[in-house]
Every structure is written in structure tokens, then in C-alpha cells.
Design a protein around this nucleic acid. Structure first.
Length: 558
RNA sequence: UGCGGAAUUGUGUAACGGCAGCACGGCAGACUCUGACUCUGUUUGUCUGGGUUCAAAUCCUAGUUCCGCAGCCA
């Protein structure tokens, strides 16, 4: 299906290196671990995008490189936002991306009992307390960057009282938001995360997986390290914005009583950003809701479902992510790198087909009326094993509107009045006459063909610079073509004013395009290069519609 | 402003005291029955100022800029 890039999950493991893998390699060299345990922990509250792909791949490839296990763990501890549908799509997207299932699929919500036990332990140890402060009071007591916080008046409740209140929180005796369980750390800490953070809050909403079992739900900072510890994760990798949370991560690991040699450790890397699109879940959701795009799987979206529907291959996405690299620098990787990765793969694997976007009739005036002859054309000049196919030639042809210019600019090598051009794979033709519509547009072009040039060079040795694609009337089927391109022409600001940043060419729809007949019999999922137009993929939602995945590079530079 | 991070060419990423390299993009050329591919050439960089050293992107020092943290989000 795909060529060299298909193996980028295996081939480059040896030389694949980044600062995270250096840490792991050192830990293994030091004998700290024999093999590693890694996880990817999405909250099932949205669709995956290409930024998530980076995270998945960093984790999955670490397991491949160093040996061990790779868990998919749904961090599904928020009943308000987490949904089954999202979990399902994430499973699909990951399998599509890495070509296999994770070693395990776990659910953080299955650890709620364990988390509760640990919380009870913290209370008994005098390290957590039930707090009655309201949301507003909590914020006020927390202080700010310049001022230390104030201790909660409920901070010194007895362990017995806390135990009793906490259990009653669990049993649903209190209103939403009326009480929290907080860790007792340091209200004066310069790290805001350490100012007696909330570890449980009351949410009276049924959980998509646990039903009505729980009325209290743990916060990220508390649940995450425990989930890691429960699964025996060795290296917990997350994005940069959690650097300030690491001391808290360690605090919970230390105080909950995880054995020294079973303590997971958190490491941070910069998440992937890509030019000419947006990655934030809020933005993606907003674009769907404002109909800026047609849905989560709109082929212009950076979601994996969108990229998949556009026709991007998982191997190209992997290649892209690996080429973009891993560091701690705030980055903005060019979309052109993704396009390059996709072209690079498809150039080697995609069969060539001739398609005409905007057909103009061409009549070969010196060709017999009822004659058809067939030329052998390579399916892929890059791949000798791809074989050839037959293309029909007759008196009545179509060429693309863009391949004819009545008043050609300099260095225009395609068809022009009185000029010669090669019809790819067949004859050289010469433009004799242009017939116009009343509005001045081209209605038909009359040409003569040179019988000496069928699939071979002219005997007189003259050089014809231009080669264009074409279709015989009896070898043309109608299709629709969508030309997709990147979404935005510039950064979009916080005001979400998409309109003024949208790329007007991000989606161009063409009806009544023509394609070689036998292309319609293509295998599902097959990708084509429409000669000189780019790489295309049949839209899985709309039969008979082809999406352009990427253009050919500089195809029509004039 | 307190704390935590980060600064290498247009972009991304290497170099871990010893010739600043690679990829993408850009530009120029060669080739071409795809203006693609391929090939060749090419441009541009160590945030700033001091210091240590035979030698600094790398170590020290003082600054600058950018990012993150004050949700009962993650």
C-alpha cells in the first residue's frame, strides 16, 4: 500500500533520538529499569488532531525503541466533558495512526476506588482536609503572584471530622461545589499549584462509564500521578505547560505511599503546532459550530479524522511528526513539511491518472472520424513494477482550460495558437484555429496531429517543450473534484475572527470534471496522482468526489 | 511583578569545550513525453554585553526577549 515510509515505525528506531529518549536510555543504562512502561492519556472530550499524533508517537515509539508496554489510558475523570463517542474515535484514530492496537486500553475512571483509598490515607495522615470555602473564597484565599495565600479556616479540622465529611461528600450528602477535598501543602508557595490544591470536588453528574456510582471526582493533578503509579508507568511524558505541576505530581506520589522503585516520573516536551491551521480544541470546536468548516472531519481540519478523509496517509503523518522533532522550544512547524512528506510517499506509490478539471473540446481535424487507437502509458514512472495501461485516442478530445492560452506569457510551454504541444503518451498536436463563444470564451480548439509522433519523438528531431494531459471523449467519465489547501493564510488571533484569515482557496469545488474511465474501478482507499494536478483521494463520504490531498510542487509556474 | 521553562539561518531540529550540520522552504541551473520526480549549485544562523579557556552555541556572570502558571479545566 505505501512504500518506503511505511516502515518509518521500525526503520529509524536505532538512530531516532531526542532528549526524552536520552533520559530513558540513561535510566536503562543505569539499571533503573529493564524495560519501560509508557502511556498516552487523552481525556475523551474531543477529537484527536495532528498535535496529539505527536504525543502518541513519542510514547509509542519509545516503547518500540526500548521495549516494554504502551498503554492507552483514557483520563476520563470529568463526567461533564467525557463521552463514549470521543473515546471510540480516539481508539480508531490511534489504531489508524500506529497501525496496531495499544498493549492495553485502560480507563482512569476504573481507578476511582483506588484514588479514593489514597485520599483517605492522606486524610488520616493529616495531609488533606475538607474545605467549605466557596469558589470565590477559594480564589481569594489563594493569593496571587505577588501575595502568598491565606490558609483556609477549615484547614485544621481533625482527621476524624475530615474522614466523616469526605465520606458524606462521596455519598452525595452535599451540594455541588459546596465542599472540596484539598491537599495540605503550603499556601505561601511561590508555585501556585502547591497552595493547598483541590483534589476532589463534588459533581452530581452521571459518568458515561461509571454511571451514578460517584458524586465526587478527582482533579487532574491528583488523579494523573496515581493513575501512572497504578499502571506502573516509568516515564510519564506530557506537554510543557505541566512543568509547574511536576512538584505536585511528585508530592502526591511521595505522600500517598508509592514504593520508591515504583515511582513514575514526569517529563515535558513542547507540543506540536503547525502553520496555517489551529490546534486548540476550543478553536476547532468553534470552527465546527460557526460552520467555518463542515465538521470535525472536514478535509481541511487538522484532526486525524479530517486528514484521513482528505486522504493523508498515516505513514506520511508519522514521517512529518518525526521530521518535526522533539524539543522544549515553542514551535510552529511549516505545513509545507507535511505536504512534502505526503508527496514524497505518494510520488513513489500513487498510480498516475489523467484528469481534466475544466474541459475544453479539442477536435483533431486530420484524424479519421470513427477511429480509436490506444497508447500504453506508465502507471507510475517512479515504479517499474506498476505496469502500464491503455489510453484511447480519437478525433474528439478534451484538454484542460489552463493548458491553453490565446495570449501566452513568456515561457508558456503549453498550447497556444499556432503552437505545438505533446499530448502525454500520444501525439504531438498543433493548434490551427480557436472557436469562441459569443462571450469571447473558448468554445473549441481545432488542431492537427502529427502521425509520425505517436508515442515517439518526431523524426525531424524538433523539440517540443510542453506536455499536457488530455482525454479522449470516449474515455472520459464525469467526476467532482475538491481542491483542498491549508485553512488560514495567517495566524488567527484570540478574537476568533476566522473570516479575515481564511484561505479563500482552502476549498474549491469543481463539477463536471473528467477522468479516465478505468479510474472508477479503483480499490477503495487508493490514492492517485492526477497528472500535473496533485495527489487525490476518493472522498469516503461522497462517491464520485475526489479530494486533493496535496498539490504537486510548483506545478504551474509561469 | 513571584515562580517555572526556553532562546541556533525564513521554519523545524542537531552539535553536550574542538571545522555550526541535517531537513523543509527560497533562489539559480541541468534533465524531463508530468513545468512533477531526480540531480547540481546557492543564500541566510548560535538573543545581547562581559568573563574563563589554546579553543565557547556549549562553562561562569549580568541583562534582554518569548512561553507557561493565580479553573472546583487538563
Amino acid at each position: 500500500m505505501s512504500g518506503n515510509n511505511n516502515n518509518n515505525l521500525n526503520a529509524n528506531l536505532e538512530e531516532m533520538s531526542n532528549f526524552l529518549y536520552d533520559i530513558i536510555a540513561k535510566d536503562i543504562a543505569d539499571g533503573k529499569y529493564k524495560e519501560i512502561a509508557i502511556r498516552y492519556p487523552p481525556g475523551p472530550n474531543g477529537y484527536m488532531h495532528i498535535g496529539h499524533a505527536k504525543s502518541v508517537l513519542i510514547n509509542y515509539l519509545a516503547k518500540k525503541k526500548f521495549g516494554g508496554i504502551f498503554n492507552l489510558r483514557f483520563d476520563d475523570k470529568n463526567p461533564v466533558s467525557d463521552e463514549e463517542e470521543y473515546a471510540k474515535s480516539i481508539c480508531e484514530d490511534i489504531k489508524w495512526l500506529i497501525g496496531t492496537d495499544p498493549d492495553n486500553i485502560f480507563y482512569g475512571s476504573d481507578y476511582f476506588d483506588k484514588c479514593y483509598e489514597y485520599a483517605v490515607k492522606l486524610i488520616k495522615d493529616g495531609k488533606a482536609f475538607v474545605c467549605d470555602l466557596s469558589s470565590e473564597e477559594f480564589t481569594e484565599y489563594k493569593g496571587d503572584f505577588n501575595n502568598p495565600g491565606k490558609e483556609s479556616p477549615y484547614r485544621n479540622r481533625s482527621a476524624e471530622e475530615n474522614l466523616d465529611l469526605f465520606e458524606r461528600m462521596k455519598n452525595g450528602e452535599f451540594e455541588d461545589k459546596s465542599k472540596t477535598l484539598r491537599a495540605k501543602i503550603d499556601m505561601a508557595s511561590p508555585n501556585m499549584n502547591m497552595r493547598d490544591p483541590i483534589i476532589y470536588r463534588i459533581i452530581d453528574v452521571p459518568h458515561y462509564r461509571q454511571g451514578n456510582k460517584w458524586r465526587i471526582y478527582p482533579m487532574y493533578d491528583y488523579a494523573h500521578p496515581l493513575q501512572d503509579a497504578i499502571e506502573g508507568i516509568t516515564h510519564s511524558m506530557c506537554s510543557l505547560e505541566f512543568e509547574n505541576n511536576r512538584p505536585l505530581y511528585d508530592w502526591f506520589i511521595d505522600n500517598v505511599g508509592i514504593e520508591e522503585n515504583k515511582k513514575p516520573h514526569q517529563y515535558e516536551f513542547a507540543k506540536l503546532r503547525v502553520t496555517n491551521t489551529v490546534m486548540g480544541k476550543r478553536y476547532l470546536k468553534d470552527m465546527v459550530e460557526t460552520k467555518t468548516v463542515d465538521g470535525w472531519d472536514d478535509p481541511r481540519m487538522p484532526t486525524l479524522s479530517g486528514l484521513r478523509r482528505r486522504g493523508f496517509t498515516p505513514s506520511a503523518i508519522r514521517d512529518f511528526v518525526l521530521k518535526a522533532g522533539v524539543s522544549k522550544v515553542y514551535n510552529n512547524v511549516s505545513i509545507k513539511l507535511l505536504e512534502f512528506c505526503q508527496r514524497d510517499e505518494l510520488n513513489k506509490t500513487a498510480k498516475r491518472k489523467i484528469a481534466v478539471l475544466e474541459p475544453i473540446p479539442v477536435t483533431i481535424i486530420n484524424y479519421p472520424e470513427n477511429q480509436t487507437e490506444y497508447f500504453d502509458v506508465s502507471n507510475n514512472p517512479e515504479d517499474e513494477t506498476s505496469g502500464t495501461r491503455k489510453i484511447a485516442f480519437s478525433k474528439y478530445l478534451y484538454i484542460d482550460k489552463s493548458d491553453f492560452e490565446e495570449n501566452p506569457p513568456p515561457k508558456f510551454f503549453r498550447l497556444k495558437p499556432g503552437g505545438e504541444v505533446r499530448l502525454m503518451g500520444s501525439y504531438i498536436i498543433k493548434c490551427e484555429e480557436v472557436i469562441k463563444n459569443p462571450d469571447g470564451s473558448v468554445k473549441e480548439i481545432l488542431c492537427v496531429y502529427d502521425p509520425e509522433t505517436g508515442g515517439k519523438n518526431p523524426p525531424d528531431g524538433r523539440k517540443i517543450k510542453g506536455t499536457i494531459h488530455w482525454l479522449s471523449k470516449n474515455n472520459a467519465e464525469k467526476i467532482n473534484i475538491n481542491l483542498f489547501d491549508y485553512l488560514f493564510i495567517s495566524e488567527i488571533p484570540d478574537d476568533k475572527n476566522y473570516a479575515e484569515h481564511l484561505n479563500p482557496n482552502s476549498k474549491l469545488e469543481y463539477k463536471n470534471c473528467l477522468i479516465e474511465k478505468d479510474a472508477l474501478e479503483a480499490d477503495p482507499g487508493e490514492r492517485f496522482q492526477f497528472v500535473r494536478m496533485g495527489y487525490f483521494y476518493k472522498d469516503c463520504k461522497y462517491d464520485g468526489t475526489y479530494n486533493r490531498i496535496v498539490t504537486l510542487k510548483d506545478s504551474y509556474k509561469i
